[in-house]
């Protein structure tokens, strides 16, 4: 039986807007296995980003449990969440979210700095990762503003891989890219998945489903179906 890397048990997330309670997630349960390629689909407001943020230790459930590598997130303090996130999770955002003052290679180095890697070692690894993410080497010293959207997302993917995470989380990674570039990015994610990394992608683009093995469909904060 495959190992469960993320276990979501009856997770509810409630936001209070004035006197109204909004259920972003309502008793959602799901298990994600190690090495899987999961897409979380749903229209906007379905709660898919909330779910992804919980998997990324950025948010905690109002009730229910989220277990990452058998660790209950609700039992961790801020430092504990940080260290779990730093060592196990790589984030890829729709807006790329690179640090504008740093070059491509320095952006990839950032997570390694927080992990205490030595300057020489982390530079070497960052360059290797950029190569893996298929960024042409001459762009390594460019600032994000000098890169195209696709190139920026490749830098972001290299950064997500910096601390050798077990899970890659991508929030609409192709949302800001044209379809050709978008497919290129998805191809890269598929390659990484084939190399053993668990990939979880949030998207509302049905075309991305072809890359995944598991799809979790969310509607109004509830799982509609889960098919493998």
């Amino acid at each position: 039986m495959p190992e469960t890397i993320a276990d979501i048990r009856k997770v509810t997330k409630v936001y209070t807007l004035g006197e109204n309670k909004i259920y972003a997630l309502n008793k959602v349960s799901a298990k994600i296995e190690k090495g899987d390629f999961v897409t979380i689909m749903g229209s906007s407001g379905s709660g898919k980003s909330t779910l992804l943020n919980m998997l990324g230790c950025l948010d905690l459930p109002t009730s229910g449990k989220v277990l990452i590598n058998n660790t209950n997130l609700s039992k961790l303090d801020d430092d504990g969440l940080t260290s779990l996130r730093r060592n196990n999770i790589g984030f890829i955002f729709q807006q790329f979210n690179l640090i504008q003052t740093l070059t491509a290679v320095e952006n990839v180095e950032i997570p390694m700095i927080f992990n205490g890697a030595s300057p020489g070692k982390r530079r070497k690894r960052a360059l290797k990762l950029l190569q893996k993410a298929q960024l042409p080497p001459e762009y390594a010293d460019h600032k994000p503003s000098e890169l195209s959207g696709g190139q920026q997302q490749r830098v972001a993917i290299a950064r997500a891989l910096a601390n050798n995470p077990t899970i890659l989380l991508a929030d609409e990674p192709t949302g800001n890219l044209d379809s050709k570039t978008g497919h290129g990015v998805m191809e890269l994610l598929r390659e990484l998945n084939q190399a053993g990394t668990t990939v979880i992608v949030v998207t509302h683009d049905p075309r991305m489903e072809e890359y995944s093995r598991t799809t979790i469909r969310l509607q109004d904060g509830e799982v509609v179906n889960e098919n493998s």
């Binding site: 940080t82 979210n97 640090i99 997500a160």
Partner: peptide, 15 residues
């Protein structure tokens, strides 16, 4: 936003 990114990629409060 930059602080948020830093935290998302592993920066602790102390960092």
């Amino acid at each position: 936003k930059e602080i948020g990114i830093m935290k998302a990629v592993g920066a602790s409060r102390r960092d």
